[in-house]
Write a protein that binds this DNA or RNA. Sequence first.
DNA 1: ACCCGCACGTCAAACGCTTAACTAATCGTC
DNA 2: GACGATTAGTTAAGCGTTTGACGTGCGGGT
Lengths: 327, 327
Amino acid sequence: MVAERAGVSTATVSLVANGKASGRVSTTNETKVREAIRALGYVVDGIGSSLARGVSNTVIMVAPDISNPFFATVIAGVRSALGSKYQLLLSVTDAGQLPSADDTRRLLGLRPAGLLVDAPEFSFLEELSAPGPLVLLDAPGFGPEIPAVNLDVAHGARLVAGHLAAAGHKKVAYLDGTTGTATFELRRTAFLETAAELGMEIPAGALAATTINVGLAADAFAEAWPRWKKAGVTAVVCATDTHAYGVLQEARAAGISIPGELAVTGFDDLPYSRTSSPSLTSVNLPGELLGRRAAEQLLRLIDGEELQTQQVTLESTLMVRGSTREA
Amino acid sequence: MVAERAGVSTATVSLVANGKASGRVSTTNETKVREAIRALGYVVDGIGSSLARGVSNTVIMVAPDISNPFFATVIAGVRSALGSKYQLLLSVTDAGQLPSADDTRRLLGLRPAGLLVDAPEFSFLEELSAPGPLVLLDAPGFGPEIPAVNLDVAHGARLVAGHLAAAGHKKVAYLDGTTGTATFELRRTAFLETAAELGMEIPAGALAATTINVGLAADAFAEAWPRWKKAGVTAVVCATDTHAYGVLQEARAAGISIPGELAVTGFDDLPYSRTSSPSLTSVNLPGELLGRRAAEQLLRLIDGEELQTQQVTLESTLMVRGSTREA
DNA sequence: ACCCGCACGTCAAACGCTTAACTAATCGTC
DNA sequence: GACGATTAGTTAAGCGTTTGACGTGCGGGT
């Protein structure tokens, strides 16, 4: 044990190890303790410490969709804001699955200092007895009483509509993502509304949906294009970049000139969109910022502060690239 | 408290909650306890439980590179093998960074039932006093005494060489990944060796390296291609699919016909490789299996079994596609 | 009747740490 | 030189479980 090696009580060791030594421990003893800690490679036992304090120094982030490259940037933001005081742990669910209530309960049993939840749908958190500090990421559609940091995807969708309208497109198609997901609902409705306001038309049948997958999107586009072309569609708006990749690929295979014959837009601005050919016009979502802000809010909650704003919304930006603009 | 509501002691509650009731608790009491548990929404406190048992029911996986889509499949495998007995938690490091020794120590302070480490380099684990059950993923170059599940990337590289030789390629270029990383070293040396054995030549200057990034790979290829072409190179082997995407993109931009004028191969078989155009010949690595096997080994270690094989190596397969074969 | 074993429960120690409360010693201050 | 204030350090009471050691009845065998 560290205590005996340094010739002090465990209380003193605890004080030193937690940096609460000033005014309680003499410098001589402090160095002795540090010395012993180093020599023995002692690390404060997180379990014991958590039990005594009633809470761990862990922040748990629940995420459903780890394969999304966007997610990595969110994590980076979270980490940078969290610093070294709290240890970030990720709990992932199977792809596309929502976190199970059971799993979540067990997570709470670990007594995290705070919880970050990045799940589009999440029905049961409210039921949980004492959730403790909690911040939702990119989860619109929850009450304003629950702290969240959201992305203004509706705004992004309006930017896309504005951009295409300004470029003179009259008839456009929309390739939707998984229906029923909040973010995709927002993207679609905002786009359709704004398009209508700006005098653009979405011909009958020019709205298709598919799950997120390059190949499926390519198929969906291949199937729909003859109809769309006949209807006079000159631009296709994709609910996510992944869809757009499929469209680009299929369009190239079919010899459709982009953006000459058909303009294509994406959403999410995944890394590949910068370098694809043609490069993809897309709505950039500030992932790193999303993570950072969420973690900052969480830290405030952990410190017992009142949040001046429960709901934070981050703007998205339109990155205009080759798929909608001649080079 | 559950105990008083059911009119029993906490000991009895513990027995029931852990399924150790048979032979110790009467059925009447057991149902009473279960009833109380349900009514109160009681969940065993992980912290208290971990302290008492000396170990938590958590498996921690350390991973450096969460943005790699390959990683998601590994996770899926781990989860499926782990089942619901252990809770999987991920500890990610900043992109490209190795886990810091300090972080790792703190993780051990959480008393995980086991540790899964997916880091190409990891110098200090051996120093850690009592690491407990530990399995390394895809970390060749560690001693055979430390349990690991590895991917036979060398075999994959040989398959690539064989495939190209059989297709009649005489002069090939190699676009390497970050040098110094174990997996890339293995890929390169295995490829170069086999290529030589099979009578293929890597002309001087036909070996370039770049970090993993589509754009950088494209640049590197653009810069090197005139030389390579002059040297008679008819195929370029990429150390990772990401590089290959850059090459494909640049080649298309430059009007190089693939695979007619130049064959391209990748490595990792990322999801996009199936659907790119042309589709990419690549070495498929069994990510899901990697995760599953590693978790299975870990479970054995946790149960105190001896491993019959400390080191497991999983075969990779060559997926021959359009980038090396006319359709 | 008596003893044994069995089924059912509870006790209480232990896990490793934190922290309020307390003691002891030192130091000014009047 | 006595007293409060300050500083340094310890004691011990938890935190919420788990689990081996103990009862305590009760039925069966002799």
